[in-house]
Nucleic acid binder design. Structure first.
Lengths: 218, 218, 218, 218
DNA sequence: TATGAATGAGTGTTCATTCAT
DNA sequence: AATGAATGAACACTCATTCAT
């Protein structure tokens, strides 16, 4: 920050840059996104509680006050980061299901894989965001996050309607099966012994398939 | 407050009380337990982050400094409360399984019921402890909490050995199925639409049974 | 907001409006007055300290930067508002005295009434301006405000010259009697027990009359 | 605070004081009073708004946190300082009246003198406290300050009862005459031309005496 | 003339932890 | 063992002011 430590002894008058000190103003969307990125990076690095507004602004290369031009409070950015993560994930899940074609077993498998096959960074972000030092959930967040379960519920509803799945209580089962994957990497439960991804995928696939009345099959 | 104004003028030698001035000192275990209780109550009421050492000592009726005679840091008590909760839960789970007798389906059901049928207060404590504003997990905590999954893993191992369950990867499945229940009440995912307990139990029972290759039926 | 997205592809040269794009610029006096009005309104509503430059510019419907085209600092507007209030009051006092005709007792009474019979809003503004959270007075302000006492001093001087009033030290008495009325509504001194106006007028009239050697009588 | 600038070059290990670093704990009353003194001094020097909690604690030679052991907020100390000032003043006024004996004219004069004859510092404190940047009055403050007018009202009531004073509306007159003195030194009204004390006393005495129907005379 | 994004110093308040008694 | 006064680093948020456009 104060690393511009001008090497003493150099005789100078006036400003040191010959290039202008950077464009002062940016499209609002871009600025907001940069702040969001910085917040996400900091949360990933230190967790929500340990992240300070200063970390965010420094990371985004803006002054402190700028933060409050785009977010009302610290809790506000955190919620925005969560929402953004969630939206990305929902999209990913939707795409995975669509890519699986018409095979109902394959669609189910796709959910499992999409749920477990996160990049390392994504997964750590997920944990930081939803497992560690999480702020009280607000109504705003609730709606956004419900989508996630909703995607899975929709799949079950369609599968049942198509006669492919055998599920009595779709709503509740969706919640439970979603839960099976969510937080599975949470270090608090697994310590150092996190099962590796292939095993997790295999075991989860079995649970999912059997739970909707499909055979384990290939 | 500082009214120790001893009535002046009265001539006296030696202490004035014939009964000891109250047992200022208590068995260490008792004190520790009281602090733990106070911490638990406060966490239940306001969550981990919002709980201060002051809340704990006030709740336990001791001076602030006393806290540090029994715990090294705030994080230390929190971990202790978590451990205590976990131990209670493990015990409860073990008892439920034992009470189910030799019926492997009943044993599985017992796990589901024990996992979901918490008292309201217990459940809120669970959420406060493990879902909201949770501190970074330490190695110490890991071991303790692993027990919980361990109980379930043991059941699967035995069931498989007895030829009653059909599970390929016991370790991983234990983690996943445990996960299915844990956090299912988490308001962040469900908002106001938490399914009621009977439906949860029914749906979870189906998932559990099917996942180990048992039929739904009672 | 940043939707100035000019429809691309349309080929055009030169400006598109034939009517000027709204009078962006106003007579300086008008703008200044609008800012002053906005400042006054905000001060009336929240007091000086709580009033921000943002409140003023928003109230005046201009951008923040515009403020600094008309005033050097926040303290500057506040002083201007004070000066404006003062000028209005001086004028009012002068008119009241003039309207009282040649009767020296009536003239004195007129001062009392003018001093106490403010509209509710005016009085609240007065208090906000001169009683609550007032900034340090500057030399600039002093001169302007001195007028107010000056009006009253002039009356005394003339009254004494005419042999109607009996006052030894006119200058000092003017300050004191002015003071008698000023701030009399100040809630800090009166709490909820502010005397009602008729009683205040009656009592103040008596003080004023007796102080210059006139009888109470009408 | 960081004035322990150890003269560099002196070779030393360990602490620098041979006398213990000052008693860490003090009687609560004393500490509170010291904080109050520091707050008063800072208010006197810079005014209420410009006074920071840091100024207060530095002035009292304690850490920032200590402040909040004795006062709930900054507004709280300010109110306490005001109350303390007020109490001192009320006491002073009471004593002055009592010292005047049975002479009703002398008692009135005593009020005038007590009201005007402040030490320079006291007067500046009064202004800082009650004239500049004053916080919103609370019910707590109201009561305390009402005492001041109350003292004067009591005098009028007794004087009227004794047949010495001729005042129709005692309550209102008390407020007005109190007001005549309060704030008379306010620089906002007088600029550099503050009348000197002897003249103020003389003129005010005349106003007071005449207002209660007494002759000017010695 | 007018704009409004950007700045960054400033401040009240909290709270885990220490330590002299 | 027990106390509780004292500490001080940390942090979210505000707002007057600037300046490139």
């Amino acid at each position: 920050m104060t690393d511009q430590s001008v090497s003493q002894g150099e005789h100078r008058i006036g400003p040191i840059w010959h290039t202008p000190p950077v464009a002062r103003t940016k499209p609002a969307d871009e600025r907001r996104e940069e702040l969001l990125d910085a917040a996400e990076a900091s949360i990933l690095e230190r967790g929500i509680t340990a992240t300070t507004v200063d970390h965010v602004t420094t990371g985004a290369g803006v002054a402190k006050g700028t933060f409050y031009l785009y977010f009302k409070t610290k809790a506000d950015v955190v919620a925005a980061v969560q929402r953004r993560y969630n939206d990305r994930f929902v999209e990913q899940l939707r795409r995975a299901i669509a890519a699986a074609g018409d095979d109902w077993a394959a669609r189910l498998d796709a959910c499992v894989e999409a749920g477990l096959h996160d990049h390392q960074a994504e997964r750590r972000l997920h944990d930081a965001l939803f497992l560690h030092t999480r702020p009280e959930p607000g109504p705003d967040l609730d709606d956004a996050l419900d989508d996630l379960v909703g995607v899975f519920r929709d799949l079950l509803v369609e599968g049942v309607a198509a006669g492919a799945y055998d599920v009595a209580d779709v709503d509740t089962t969706a919640v439970l099966l979603f839960n099976t994957l969510h937080g599975v990497y949470d270090p608090i439960w697994l310590g150092a012994r996190t099962p590796d991804e292939p095993r997790l995928v295999a075991a989860a696939r079995t649970i999912y398939r059997r739970s909707v009345g499909l055979p384990d099959g290939p």
